[in-house]
Amino acid sequence: MRKEKLVNFQNIAPGQTAILTCPLGPTYERIKINLTGGLLISMITNIVGKINDKPFFTVTGNDLLAENLYEGRSNPTNLLLLDFTRMNAKSSGSKMGATAQTSEMLLTCIPSALLQKLTFEITLAATAPAGCSMTALAQINDPTKNPMVLKKLYSAGAFPYAQDNDIPLAVGMAGAVIKKMFVHQSNYGPAWATSTAYTVGQLVTDGSNLYQCTTAGTSASSGAGPTGTGTGIVDGTAQWAYVSAAGSISYMQVRNAGVIIWEGAPADAQGDQTDYGKVTQAGLTVFDFDLQGFRDKWLNTAVTNNVFLRLTTTGGPFNWRLYQDIVDPVQR
């Protein structure tokens, strides 16, 4: 294993988009970006990886953190970890016989020898501290001719009511081999709790409503927490403001050509994922086709004509961000 510092890192400043340009030649397995000078991953509003100036990997700092923690990776809040390996990969069947486990682990790493340009654009919030900085270290391997790479596709939407809601996936020539899908709830807050210290800006859910802390303090030792739809809602020494109603997912399905190929409540998915060493994250729902490490079980929407997610919601709205982790030819 080799590790190199990536030195071409430009325009690192609050409110700006920093650009990391990666040297061509090696295969990039992981890139660790250390955040210094008080910079935190929550202050990274967007990360866009580009191959030959075309986006292939999009995610926010907070969402990347939640997904890494779900995978069981160590990810402190002063680190951006971009991991293109498959640590749980198993040997897979092929026309030539079983594949080697090592080749499966490196299947989705970035083959920069096949590229003309590889960059990552990292946007810092305007509230990031002055004088903050970033340094990047890459875990690399020898050049490869393997043309596949992990891509992360982003979309977002909202379900305003309690009902069955469908998210169609690209199929046929526009389809892809999907490894995982991450559904982040934008209007999510953990359940309100008694005798808990809250800071300004924190979100909680109480009943079917979402509240934001406007005055830091400790919640009441008894009672039901904030209620109503106003501002200045007193709760112990803390105060809250109503943000919106907030729905939740009660049931999930994946349908392929009219056939249900996966279904269950979020708790069912989380139970399976825990069995395979994944770590449940608040506000995150995962469709994981790579739990067992076999790529034979990935969802291939390129060979069908109708695939969609059906999310049944209670309450509303349910605002979401969806990331599809796909395995795709690097030049597509």
Rank of each mutant, 00 (worst) to 15 (best):
F56V: 01
Q324W: 04
T58H: 01
T274A: 10
S94N: 08
S208K: 08
Q10V: 08
I122P: 00
F57L: 05
L309S: 10
L210A: 01
L291Q: 15
F57I: 05
N305P: 07
S74H: 10
L115D: 02
S112T: 08
K90R: 14
V307C: 07
T215W: 08
S208Y: 07
P129T: 14
I33F: 00
G230F: 10
T108H: 00
A267N: 15
F84E: 00
G232H: 04
Y70H: 05
T36W: 05
V286N: 01
A282Y: 05
K179R: 12
R255T: 12
G207W: 02
A246G: 04
D325E: 15
M134S: 04
T99V: 07
A216L: 10
G271C: 07
V200E: 07
N88Q: 08
S222P: 07
T144A: 03
S219L: 14
W240R: 08
T218Y: 04
S74V: 14
T237Q: 06
T285E: 11
G247H: 01
T85K: 04
D63E: 11
Q10F: 05
R86W: 01
F294D: 13
W262Y: 15
M43G: 10
L107M: 03
Q163P: 05
P111Y: 00
V48D: 01
P168A: 06
I12L: 11
E71Q: 12
L322H: 07
T229M: 09
G38Q: 06
M148C: 03
Y188P: 01
T237M: 05
